Amino acid sequence: MAAPRNLVVEVGGLRDEENGEDSPTSKKPIGTKLEGKFPLSRWEFAAALAVFFIFSMALFFIFMTMPAAEYGKLKFPRTVSDLRALKDHLARYANSYPAKFILGYCSIYIFMQTFMIPGTIFMSLLAGALFGVVRGLFLVVFNATAGASSCFFLSKLIGRPVVNWLWPEKLRYFQGEIAKRREKLLNYMLFLRITPSLPNLFINLASPIVDIPFHVFLLATIIGLIPASYITVRAGLALGDLKSVKDLYDFKTLSVLFLIGSVVIVPTLLKRKRVYE
């Protein structure tokens, strides 16, 4: 017997065949991948465009306040060689217009972090090259935290279908790990931030979906980003010796990060051991 015309069961919910739209009462489960289907509804896509437009206009108006003569010399670096070539010019610019340079630097960093644009590692190297370890580390951690927080709230608005679409298996795994560690959630989030166990991009997007409280997310981000940021900022002091960004995280550096992360997650592991005894 043929299926009724008005209903078609799909992965993740019900779909009305006649009007071609998702049922408003359907809820797509975490970890379900929608094959061949754009993940955002029309209102979600419109909301994403609106947020991007607002951030872009703010960035545009900030750069409109900068000296026009400097525009032609500004170029976003894509390699360490590009960064070395840009460093001297930016150093003169930072000395001549310190407040405007800091404002422009922070705006670009937060914009890139919010909308998951690759290249923030060059911004971190630049902070070390121009401001030294202490000020550079403060700038990087501040901007990375602000950008991650913006990404968190953007994902809270429209992130669920995107993450379900891109990383269904990884999201299921993350949800399961979070469920097992609710009582020591801060320790686990610190471990993830300190070590490269999961990409920071995924953590920013998935955290609101698996119901991680924002205060836990924020504190783990501020503290957990310090070790890796210190390594990157410090490397910016010696750009001439750096051949590639891959050189930043060699086996020794990764081992140190995992060692720090292991110390942080010990209370969580001990708690689980006591539960099973």
Rank of each mutant, 00 (worst) to 15 (best):
150 S>I: 10
243 K>P: 04
223 I>Q: 03
259 L>G: 15
78 R>I: 03
4 P>S: 08
181 R>D: 07
253 T>W: 08
184 K>F: 10
247 D>R: 02
139 L>H: 01
83 L>P: 01
22 D>F: 12
132 G>V: 09
134 V>W: 13
166 L>K: 00
191 F>I: 03
199 P>D: 02
29 P>C: 02
254 L>I: 07
142 F>I: 03
198 L>H: 00
59 L>Q: 08
207 S>D: 01
34 L>M: 14
135 R>V: 07
115 F>P: 02
261 G>V: 12
149 S>W: 06
237 L>Q: 13
161 P>Q: 05
238 A>C: 11
168 P>Q: 08
271 K>V: 06
55 F>H: 06
150 S>V: 15
150 S>L: 11
73 K>H: 12
225 L>K: 15
182 R>Y: 13
61 F>P: 10
164 N>M: 01
25 T>W: 11
122 F>E: 10
85 A>V: 05
268 T>Y: 15
181 R>K: 08
267 P>F: 03
52 F>I: 11
68 A>T: 11
219 L>N: 07
15 R>A: 13
137 L>Q: 00
84 R>S: 01
18 E>Y: 15
98 P>D: 01
204 N>C: 10
57 M>K: 13
238 A>L: 13
213 P>S: 00
261 G>S: 11
177 E>Q: 15
90 L>A: 05
266 V>M: 12
198 L>R: 00
189 M>P: 12
173 Y>R: 08
77 P>M: 04
202 F>C: 01
206 A>H: 04
225 L>C: 09
124 S>D: 14
8 V>K: 12
250 D>G: 08
189 M>R: 14
131 F>M: 02
